[in-house]
Simulated scan of single mutants.
Amino acid sequence: MVRDTAALRAAHDGTGSYLQEMGAEGSVPDSAHLRPELTHEIRGLRAWLPLYLHGVGAFRKALDEKRDLAEHVHDTLSGVAELEVPQRPDLSAAIFRFRPADGSRAAAERADETSRRLLQRINSHRRIVLSSMAVDNRHTLRLCVVSHRTHHGRITEALKIIIAETKRHTAA
């Protein structure tokens, strides 16, 4: 939204010859001349504007919070006997999977299938969405904390769902 469209149009003059008829007297307004990238969105603006408005410190604080939340997930799920948590989080993603009954390949395959079903049950709650990945050729669930709106309360809720569904499988 601008007050002086002529000034904005002059700032972005020089677009391609295929747009010559746009904006002629009595035609549809030429919005291509009112923004810098014609049909492309301004991707850098999404990163630049919040950095400009809030500063780097706010982003550092938010990233530290998300990393702390991933560590909390790791530490909590490490205490669940049915689960194995193969790695500490480097950034904001914590991974886990069902622990095999023994060291055999068949037990690992059964545990992977159980992890697949666990993922479906967790996501069926529609309160959180986890994804999966292969780690050491094993089906591994992934909780990644990326939203700026995710805080400790949401992670507590996620952990309750994960643990309840893990226990529900064990009891079945």
Score class of each variant (00 low, 15 high):
52 Y>E: 09
109 E>M: 14
70 A>L: 03
136 D>C: 15
134 A>V: 14
119 L>T: 03
24 A>T: 08
105 R>M: 09
14 G>V: 04
149 R>L: 10
165 E>D: 10
31 S>T: 14
65 E>C: 04
89 P>I: 06
170 T>L: 12
71 E>A: 14
126 R>N: 09
54 H>M: 14
89 P>M: 04
146 V>C: 09
139 H>K: 08
6 A>Q: 03
6 A>D: 03
110 R>M: 04
93 A>Q: 11
54 H>C: 06
12 H>I: 06
73 V>C: 03
164 A>R: 07
172 A>N: 12
164 A>V: 15
12 H>L: 07
153 G>I: 03
80 V>R: 03
98 F>P: 00
170 T>P: 15
140 T>K: 01
54 H>D: 06
160 K>G: 05
107 A>G: 15
86 P>M: 10
23 G>A: 03
74 H>Q: 13
76 T>Q: 04
147 S>E: 15
90 D>P: 11
107 A>N: 10
129 V>S: 05
69 L>Q: 00
77 L>S: 00
89 P>K: 05
56 V>Y: 11
108 A>S: 08
31 S>R: 12
133 M>S: 12
123 N>C: 05
16 G>T: 03
2 V>R: 06
32 A>S: 12
46 R>P: 06
158 A>V: 13
112 D>S: 05
50 P>V: 04
9 R>I: 01
142 R>K: 15
162 I>K: 02
48 W>G: 10
131 S>A: 11
76 T>I: 07
108 A>V: 09
138 R>I: 07
55 G>Y: 00
135 V>H: 08
129 V>L: 15
30 D>Y: 13
106 A>K: 06
16 G>F: 05
159 L>A: 00
55 G>T: 00
6 A>C: 01
4 D>T: 11
168 R>W: 15
83 L>R: 02
84 E>Y: 10
82 E>P: 05
116 R>V: 11
155 I>H: 02
59 F>Y: 15
86 P>C: 05
63 L>Y: 09
119 L>G: 05
169 H>I: 12
59 F>S: 10
13 D>K: 13
1 M>V: 10
130 L>W: 02
124 S>Q: 04
89 P>H: 08
136 D>R: 14
10 A>Y: 00
169 H>E: 14
21 E>I: 15
25 E>N: 12
169 H>V: 14
20 Q>A: 13
67 R>F: 03
150 T>D: 00
122 I>F: 01
3 R>G: 08
151 H>D: 10
73 V>G: 01
42 I>V: 14
25 E>W: 12
94 A>T: 02
170 T>H: 12
146 V>F: 13
106 A>N: 04
12 H>W: 13
93 A>D: 08
67 R>S: 06
33 H>R: 10
115 S>W: 01
130 L>N: 02
25 E>C: 15
167 K>Q: 15
57 G>V: 02
118 L>C: 09
154 R>Y: 15
131 S>F: 06
52 Y>M: 10
161 I>H: 09
